[in-house]
């Protein structure tokens, strides 16, 4: 086992909702107690429904926001306001929508060079250009695309540019926030292959955020299932898809449509919707929708148990 490149300890993020002139401020608990470790060359997938804190986690890990509690260590250096500049090059992010994340007024080359201009100002311009052109080939575009604008590319090509931009600083950790969910099926497989190739060649660690379980099953090594800002199950991929210990994971998997019409499976129907993260229920956050919930679940919050396949449930399977 190699040394983890990213170790997160109890990460917590909260946002304050202003109550206005007369109302009271309310606190949105977007992320609570996320702990995990990520090794080089591995992919850790984070799955869950909207509002479960996936994207908040991405923002905290990429140091766009500072967590209100908890800490994480990147490549041996604890992250904080002092080490921010130094660690910027270690972790980079690829966003979901390649139509919104590229500046339409910048040429492809400028987009790729901008991280270098900011983070390595001493680098000569010729060297920057050379690296940008190399990067184009690496992500499967052609060097002559250097002078084109984003609108001249298709969705898949744009996502390649976004991946290229993230790799310009030679990061060790790449946060992928729903990188393929805005793409068509035939393009999606191209980008997934690209990510697999890059990981093999550069030894990158991926934090792969997705709601699509079939993509996660394909690409991940380990999986964290989140519910209302909390990890409810953490396990190696094979174990998780083989046997789910938390009822929420079970429901999530059974709800995912399978592209096989001959399969008639028993679907677990969840009643109700996600509670708002402003008033998270006492006890287990999943208890109001859970079919196994008992009195204890509504009063006492279950913690993640120990082992390789961890679940936060009073009655795990």
């Amino acid at each position: 086992m190699s040394e983890p490149v990213l170790v997160a300890e109890n990460l917590t993020q909260e946002y304050v909702l202003k109550g206005g002139l007369f109302g009271q401020d309310r606190i949105v608990r977007a992320l609570t107690g996320a702990s995990f470790a990520l090794e080089p060359g591995k992919t850790l997938a984070v799955v869950g429904e909207s509002g479960c804190g996936k994207s908040t986690l991405a923002r905290v890990i990429t140091m766009i926001e500072e967590p209100v509690a908890g800490s994480f260590v990147l490549d041996g250096t604890p992250a904080g306001p002092d080490t921010l500049a130094a660690l910027r090059t270690t972790v980079q992010i690829v966003f979901q929508d390649p139509f919104g994340s590229l500046n339409p007024r910048q040429r492809c080359g400028q987009i790729l060079e901008e991280p270098l201009i900011i983070n390595a100002p001493e680098m000569p311009a010729a060297e920057r250009t050379r690296r940008a052109r190399e990067m184009l080939t690496l992500v499967g575009l052609r060097p002559e695309h250097y002078d084109r604008y984003p609108h001249m590319f298709s969705g898949g090509q744009r996502q390649r540019i976004a991946v290229g931009r993230a790799l310009m600083l030679e990061p060790k950790v790449l946060v992928l926030d729903e990188p393929v969910s805005a793409l068509d099926l035939s393009i999606q497989s191209q980008i997934l292959n690209l990510l697999v190739d890059l990981q093999e060649r550069l030894g990158l660690a991926y934090l792969f955020i997705s709601h699509d379980l079939s993509v996660v099953k394909h690409i991940a090594d380990d999986v964290i299932v989140m519910y209302l800002g909390r990890p409810v199950e953490i396990a190696p991929k094979a174990d998780l898809f083989d046997h789910q210990r938390h009822p929420y994971t079970k429901a999530l998997l059974s709800a995912t449509p399978m592209a096989d019409p001959t399969l008639r499976k028993q679907r677990i129907k969840l009643v109700g919707e996600l509670p708002s993260p402003v008033n998270i229920p006492d006890g287990c956050p999943f208890a109001p929708r859970c079919w196994k919930a008992e009195a204890r679940c509504r009063t006492e919050r279950p913690e993640l148990d120990q082992g390789t396949h961890r679940a936060a449930c009073h009655f795990p399977e």
């Binding site: 099926l185 035939s186 497989s189 099953k217 394909h218």
Partner: peptide, 20 residues
């Protein structure tokens, strides 16, 4: 299209449809 589905994949590399 069916071959490109991640859940039908047998290897780490998915079959793709080249071009757009």
């Amino acid at each position: 299209l069916l071959a490109a589905l991640p859940e039908r994949a047998t290897t780490k590399h998915l079959p793709t449809i080249p071009g757009v």
